Amino acid sequence: MTTTRTLGRGGMAVSADTPEYARRALTASLRRLGTDHVDLYRLHISDADPDRAVELRDAREGFVREGLVRAYGWSTDDPERAAVFAEGPHRAAVQHTLNVLQEAPRTLALCERLEPASVNRGPLAMGLLAGRRGGTLEAGDIRSRPLPAWLPGYAPDGSGADPRWPARIDAVRDVLTSGGRTLAQGALAWLWARSPRTVPIPGFRTVAQAEENAGAIEKGPLTAGQLAEIDRLLGR
């Protein structure tokens, strides 16, 4: 589905999956940020047409030559689409869903072959891998509303966690919490063990949660044996 945005003088409508829109959006962002460049410029139209994506990649190479962008990437769970950007000279990242319960072997293989970073969306499965068990959710919490298809793990009607997901987490809890890790730290440790290209981007709502996430670094990745044990327990 092509997304249309209105951007620029005169309210002119410009399709969001075009080089023209990318330049206007980038220029507007630089102005708001008060800077002359961004380090990583990502495309967030996950289902953009692959043929159009070549134009978008080439436009970003132009931004690099102009000094407006240092590197670029695509946020998409489709490895074939991700490959279009990953083949560009200045690509730096593929952002995609990856966590203990949601594997992405083809995208990881792409990242290991072409060497962009694997930036991991949903590394804590929207809180489930941080110990969230459902129950009452705060007003405004995206998980309390009917959910889009890209957000599994919670009941579609917004009533809380899908009971199948906590059951799977319980099956691997002992492995993830080994070495004094919290559940969230174990989920991050799994990602680092899964591939050296992974860069998880866990969310947090409090300072304590941010510190807990950061504390996973000193405990390091899980072992290869622990990875294999998790695969066995999850039946994959």
Rank of each mutant, 00 (worst) to 15 (best):
T35V: 15
L227D: 01
S178F: 00
A130S: 13
Y41T: 11
A139S: 14
A167Y: 06
A208Q: 10
Q185T: 11
A193S: 07
S178K: 01
E212T: 14
K219I: 05
A125G: 01
L30A: 03
T182H: 03
I142V: 15
L68C: 09
Y72Q: 05
P79M: 02
P146R: 01
R133M: 09
W150G: 07
D162R: 00
R145C: 10
T35C: 11
A59E: 07
K219F: 07
T6C: 01
T97N: 07
V119T: 12
S15A: 11
T27I: 00
P89T: 12
L176E: 02
D231K: 11
A189V: 13
Y154H: 09
G88T: 12
A184C: 07
I201L: 13
R181D: 03
A161G: 02
A93R: 02
D49N: 06
S118W: 05
Q209F: 13
H37F: 15
M126A: 14
R23M: 08
I45M: 02
R164D: 14
E103L: 05
P148F: 12
I142T: 10
R106G: 03
R91S: 15
G62Y: 04
L30T: 06
T3D: 09
R232E: 14
L183R: 06
M12L: 01
P196Y: 08
F63K: 00
A92E: 03
D39G: 10
G135D: 11
E218W: 00
E55A: 08
I142A: 09
D170H: 04
I201Q: 02
P19M: 06
P196W: 06
T223D: 00
N99D: 10
G34D: 05
D231Q: 13
E66K: 00
A83Q: 13
D162L: 12
D51G: 01
T4L: 10
G160E: 03
L137W: 12
Q209V: 11
A189D: 05
V175S: 02
P166K: 02
A155D: 09
G8D: 07
E218F: 00
T35W: 04
A139T: 15
G140N: 09
A167T: 14
D162H: 08
G186Q: 01
G153N: 04
R133T: 15
L114E: 02
G62E: 07
A224C: 00
P89G: 08
G215Q: 05
E61H: 01
A82L: 09
R31N: 03
G215N: 06
R197P: 12
S159G: 02
G180M: 08
G160T: 13
W165V: 13
P79G: 01
L129T: 14
T18N: 04
R121V: 09
A149N: 10
S118C: 11
R23G: 08
D39L: 06
R145N: 11
E212I: 13
V69M: 04
R173F: 15
S15T: 11
